[in-house]
């Protein structure tokens, strides 16, 4: 990694060295490009940059919104809208998820910003789970992808909302045992608006890159044919699509189209794919462990995945 190349030198500052490295890669592209002609590596690069490019506007929007919440949303106002009791605040926060159009990457910094303003962590996490899954953009794209099956949209929204609320209540019950790391001290009120946003962006962005690297590798190298072998089996089909949703880390606005193309699978399995993906995937898991600490993530990630699978199966049996 670049740290090793820049750490030990003394005469040139770290910033100058990074600038020189970037200039060298730009100036040397003529010689570098023939070295990387491998098809699979180039495909990975395209997919990796694609995920980063697609996510950047949402992440930038998220950190700016988070900075705006920190600065302009007063605690008394938040108290009036959200019930003081966390058990009641959780469902309110879940329904509020309808209002943030954007995908997962925006939701992580926004929920952190809401916590900084005194929203109970459980409610902020509920919002984090609900917003990418039930916002208007996702509802529209799911309806377009399943034109003859409107119950899929209803089941997706219902199962995602229930998942978010159940996990929120679980967080209320766990309380301090969640072991959430909060970086509240860094964000004092005197800091500039843009400086706070920059800090949040760098913090979340590195983890986003880790998630993008993994997702690009999965989408490049894992052949889709291995999915077909288990499509006919009810239980295994559900579990495999849940795993696929986790590792492929598709945007919640586009995953419905991929689900629609997995025609060999049962509707319940495809609903599971749509409920697990926005709630938890490898990109979100990386970002959340960066934001809230690994001890928290080790509990939160598996609980979210299990609750999402359970809710999706129940919703699928009842509604589809």
């Amino acid at each position: 990694m670049s740290t090793t190349t820049v750490a030990p030198r003394r005469r040139l500052s770290q910033t100058t060295l990074v600038a020189l490295l970037l200039l060298a890669s730009a100036a040397g592209q003529h010689w570098l490009r023939p070295l990387v002609r491998s098809d699979s590596f180039q495909t990975w690069c395209t997919m990796f940059v694609a995920v980063v490019v697609q996510s950047t506007p949402f992440l930038v929007g998220g950190v700016l919104l988070s900075a705006a919440i920190s600065r302009f949303l007063s605690e008394p106002l938040l108290r009036r809208v959200i019930p003081r009791n966390p058990v009641l605040a959780v469902p309110v926060a879940g329904i509020a998820g309808l209002g943030l159009p954007g995908c997962e990457c925006a939701a992580v910094p926004v929920s952190e910003g809401l916590m900084r303003r005194g929203l109970p962590p459980a409610a902020a996490l509920t919002f984090l789970l609900a917003a990418p899954a039930i916002n208007p953009g996702v509802i529209v794209s799911t309806a377009v992808a399943f034109p003859n099956n409107h119950m899929m949209v209803v089941a997706r929204v219902a199962a995602s909302l229930v998942t978010a609320v159940l996990v929120g209540w679980w967080c209320v019950a766990r309380g301090d045992r969640l072991g959430m790391v909060r970086r509240a001290a860094v964000h004092d009120h005197d800091r500039g608006f843009l400086d706070g946003a920059l800090h949040d962006f760098l913090h979340a962005g590195g983890f986003l890159v880790i998630g993008a690297m993994t997702a690009a590798a999965v989408n490049t190298f894992v052949p889709r044919t291995w999915l077909d072998g288990v499509a006919g089996q009810a239980v295994l089909g559900v579990l495999v699509l849940a795993l696929f949703a986790f590792i492929a880390a598709l945007c919640s606005e586009s995953d419905a189209f991929v689900a629609a193309s997995l025609t060999a699978f049962s509707d319940v399995a495809r609903l599971t794919f749509l409920v697990v993906g926005p709630a938890m995937d490898i990109k979100l898991a990386a970002m959340e462990s960066g934001q809230f600490g690994t001890r928290f993530a080790r509990q939160f990630v598996p609980v979210v995945v299990c609750v999402a699978i359970g809710t999706a199966v129940v919703a699928g049996k009842v509604l589809l």
């Binding site: 990694m1 670049s2 740290t3 990074v18 490295l21 970037l22 890669s25 730009a26 040397g28 592209q29 570098l32 490009r33 990387v36 590596f41 180039q42 690069c45 395209t46 990796f48 940059v49 980063v52 490019v53 860094v186 800091r191 400086d195 920059l198 800090h199 760098l202 913090h203 962005g205 590195g206 983890f207 890159v209 880790i210 690297m213 960066g290």
Partner: peptide, 26 residues
């Protein structure tokens, strides 16, 4: 600026380096 960022933030250089050095084709 005050406030430290985690080491993973260095990874944000990777997309830039790849766009410069590999220029991924469609």
């Amino acid at each position: 600026l005050e406030g430290r960022v985690p080491r993973t933030s260095w990874l944000l250089l990777l997309p830039t380096l790849i766009v410069f050095a590999v220029a991924p084709p469609p």
